[in-house]
Design a protein around this nucleic acid. Sequence first.
DNA 1: TTAAAAAGCTAAATCGTTTAACTTTTTCGA
DNA 2: TCGAAAAAGTTAAACGATTTAGCTTTTTAA
Lengths: 340, 340
Amino acid sequence: MKKLTLKDVAKELGVSTATISNAFNRPDQLSAVKRAEILDACKKIGYTGPNRAAQILRKGQSNIVALVLADSLDYMVTDPVASTFIQGVSRVLRENQKHLLLYAGDSESIADVVDFVDGFICYGAPRNPGLSQQLNQQSKPVVTVDFNLEGRPAINIDNEQASYEIAKAALSKGDHVAILGLRLIDSPSTCRIYNSPLLDAESSITHRRLDGYSQALKELDIKVDSDWIWNLPENAGVYAIQAAKEVLYSQPRPNVILCMSDIIALELLQCAMSMGIDVPGELKITGFDGIEEASRTRPYLATVCQSSVEKGMQAARLLLSGENQSMSLPYEIKLGETLG
Amino acid sequence: MKKLTLKDVAKELGVSTATISNAFNRPDQLSAVKRAEILDACKKIGYTGPNRAAQILRKGQSNIVALVLADSLDYMVTDPVASTFIQGVSRVLRENQKHLLLYAGDSESIADVVDFVDGFICYGAPRNPGLSQQLNQQSKPVVTVDFNLEGRPAINIDNEQASYEIAKAALSKGDHVAILGLRLIDSPSTCRIYNSPLLDAESSITHRRLDGYSQALKELDIKVDSDWIWNLPENAGVYAIQAAKEVLYSQPRPNVILCMSDIIALELLQCAMSMGIDVPGELKITGFDGIEEASRTRPYLATVCQSSVEKGMQAARLLLSGENQSMSLPYEIKLGETLG
DNA sequence: TTAAAAAGCTAAATCGTTTAACTTTTTCGA
DNA sequence: TCGAAAAAGTTAAACGATTTAGCTTTTTAA
C-alpha cells in the first residue's frame, strides 16, 4: 500500500494537481465549494496532505529552526540558565508551528542542515570556532544570543553595565577582590589567568562582564592582579568547586569575590559556609543570572537577574520576524544577603 | 550569486551529474582519480555538496530523528531524569551523524514531520493520546521508552519487579502505608485517587509500579485503601509539595510512603524534616529513579536506580539499528537512610 | 585475435510538490 | 447585449538531487 500523492488524488478527483495543492495552501485560488469538496475527498481516500519533504525542496522552507548551543547538549540540558532558554525558544516556535532542531555547538559543521533549515538561533559562542564562521557565511537568517556575530542581530543584556553595577554595590575602598570568570581564556580546566591572552574578547559576554567589573574596581582604586582572576572552562559545578576551593584557601583571602554566574557563586557560597567563613561578614559574594536556586539559599545571593525564558522567546520571535535589529533586554540588580 | 547545483558543477567540469553525485555518495562507482579530481574541483568552485532538501526528497531519508516527549518541553528540560535521557539520545545520534528534532508530547499532530523524519523515539506516553495513535499508524520506525505502543519495540526496566523489591525492603507487617503516584488517573492537579478509574493502565509504567507495590503489600497482608494513594499529574516539584503536605497532615499519618519518583520523594522528605518528623524513625520513604540529588540529602534516599543516559543511548541505538526487539534494562535497588 | 567481462560514464526517469503563465468561464456595468 | 475584468482552473516548468539501465571503452583470458 503505497503512500498517496497529489497526482493520485488529482486523477481520482478529475482535477489538476495544482488545484489540489491550492486547496491545501492557497484557499483564495479556488472556490470555497470546490475546496471543501476536495478536502473532503482527500480525507475520504486517506490523503493527509502534501508531502513535507517535497514541500521543503520546492518552497525552500521547512519550518525547522536550528538551535545551535555553545556547548555540548550534555551540558546544556543540565544548566538551569540554558535549559530555561531552550524552553523560551521552544514555546515561541511551537506557537508559530515551527520545529526545533537541537544542534550542539561542538559539532563539526552545519553543512548537514543548512540546506533545509529556515534559520539559526545561536546561544553563546560555539566551542568550535569554525561553526561561527560557517554560520556567518551562509545566507539563512541567524540570531545570536549572549554573543555577537558580525552583521547578525543579537540579543543581549548590557553585560558591561550590569556587571559594573553589581560590582559597585559589592565593593568598598580597600577591599581585596577576586573574580571567578567564565571562558575568559582557552583552558580545559579551572585555573588562574595569570598573563594568559584573553580569548575572542570581541564577541564574548564574559569579557564584557570583566570590563564592567574593571570599571567599578578602577573607580574605587582597587587593583586586581590577573592572579586573582580564575577562569572556568564551563559553567558547571565541578569547575566551580575547584575554583572555590582554590580561591578560599589562597592567602590573603579576598573579602569580595565577584562570580560570573550563579552556579559558580552558589558553589563558592557553599564551600565558604562549610569552611566556617562568615558571609557576608568576612566574605561578600556576587553572582550573575538570577537562577531560582540563588534565592533559596541562606544567605541568599546578590546577583544580576535576567530572564532566560524571555531571552529565548525574544530570540525566536526575532528570527521569525526576519528583522535584522539587535535587542537589549532588561536586567535587574538584586542586592542579596551575601552583600550584607 | 545563486547557490551552485549539481548541474552547474557538471557543466563546469564536463561530466554528467550522475558522476558528481557518485563522487559524493558512492565512491565505488568511479575511479579514485576521477573522484579526487571532482571533489577538488568542487571545493575550488565552492560547491559544498548535494543539497540536503533535494536529497531528503529523493532518498526518502533525512538523518533527522524526532524525539517525542511525553510532556511539554517546558517541563522536560527541567526534570533531571528527562534531561539526562535527552543527553543519552543526543550522544548516540551525534555519533551517527543524525540530527535531533525535539517534539513536545502535547502537540496536536506529527503530520508536520512524519514525511521527512527517519523515525521516532517516544519518551513516555504522550499527553495527547491522539499522538500515540498517529505514531502507531504511520510506517516510520518508532522506539518507545517508559511506555508501550503495540507492536513497536520498547525500552524499559522491569518496573513491576523493581517496585516490588523496593517496597518489600521498606515494608513490615502492620505498617500504615501511603503511595504517592504519578499519572495514575486523569486529573489536572494533585489529588487522592479514591475510586477514580485508572488511566490507560495497559501501557503506563506507573501502573506497573503500582502493581509491584501491590504485590509486596499483599504478601505482608497490608491493605492500602485508594484514599491513601495520591496522584500527581506531572513529575514536578509543585505537585509533589502539595501531595507531601496532604499526606503528612493526614490522620493517622502513614509510617511508610512509597513514592513513584525521586522528585516526589525528595519534596516529601524535605517537608517531613521541616515538620520535625523523624525519618526513618517515624516515617520511611522510598523513591524511584536514582537521580543524583537523591544521594546528597541527609538522610539519603532509598530508591530504584536506573540510568537515564543509558536508556537514551539504547533507545537511539535501537532505532538506528532498525530491529524490532524490545529491551529490558537493568536497575538497582539502593537501600538508603530513609529506610533506616 | 577476439569474445566476454569489467570499469567508467551518461541519459533519462523519478521523488512529490509549487507556481508563473495561460485558457476558459463567469460576472457585471454601461 | 457587449466587452472588459475578475474568477476558476489547467498546464508545464521548476526545485536539486539519485539511480537504473544502457552505452562505450578498457581489460582479461583463452
